[in-house]
């Protein structure tokens, strides 16, 4: 019972012609030698042939093509997306975020006192004082002017993007009517 799906899947792969050459020869041998495989193979092959030869396509109404052509006459082919997506904007947004992250890192590393620290037996080229890390006040970092500026710039950018999005939507609606 447990082997049933496996046999079926392997047989379907063989019938569909997607089995690897090794798998194909194994399945062929199994079909020749094993009656269970042979019976199942013929059963699935019948289903496969039935579907390959008997499936019919449904046809729409006689006027279908005409209806489509009348419909598309109202429209223009939209320009390809790549032609109106300005890569400079994408690079600009990416650059902004990279600069922000870099700024944060520089600020964070600049606040660390590299000369301090204990004489631990670490193999690192510099010593890290665990007490200093624990005592580092992160709230100072996130309450600083830098954070406020960062949040402000992001808020402004968010509003600009929202305005652009809504403006585009409005334009699309106007085009429709």
């Amino acid at each position: 019972m447990n082997t049933q799906p496996s046999i079926e899947e392997r047989l379907w792969d063989y019938i569909d012609g997607i089995a690897t050459p090794e798998e194909k020869s194994i399945v062929e041998q199994l079909i020749d030698s094993n009656i269970e495989w042979r019976n199942q193979y013929h059963e699935l092959l019948d289903v496969h042939q039935l579907m390959s030869n008997s499936l019919e396509l449904d046809e729409p109404s006689m006027r279908f093509t005409q209806n489509v052509m009348e419909d598309i006459a109202k429209y223009q082919i939209a320009p390809a997306a790549k032609s109106y997506i300005n890569k400079r904007i994408i690079w600009g947004i990416m650059g902004f975020f990279m600069l922000t992250i870099a700024g944060f890192l520089i600020y964070a590393f600049g606040s660390v006192n590299w000369s301090g620290g204990g004489s631990g037996s670490t193999t690192l080229p510099f010593n890290i004082d665990a007490n200093r890390i624990n005592s580092f006040d992160f709230s100072k970092l996130f309450n600083s002017t830098y954070t406020s500026v960062f949040v402000m710039v992001n808020a402004v950018l968010g509003l600009v993007l929202l305005d652009m999005y809504l403006g585009k939507k409005k334009k699309q609606l106007q085009e429709k009517h």
Binding site: P60, F64, N67, V68, D71, I72, Q76, I77, A80, A81
Partner: peptide, 28 residues
């Protein structure tokens, strides 16, 4: 589309919509 809707009218409406959308996006 008929497989989805089981209604010839709806299927035809969707099929027509598909061809219109395809036409408008043909440049893509």
């Amino acid at each position: 589309t008929l497989r989805y809707t089981n209604s010839r009218e709806d299927a035809e409406e969707i099929a027509q919509d598909v061809f219109v959308k395809a036409y408008r996006s043909l440049a893509d």
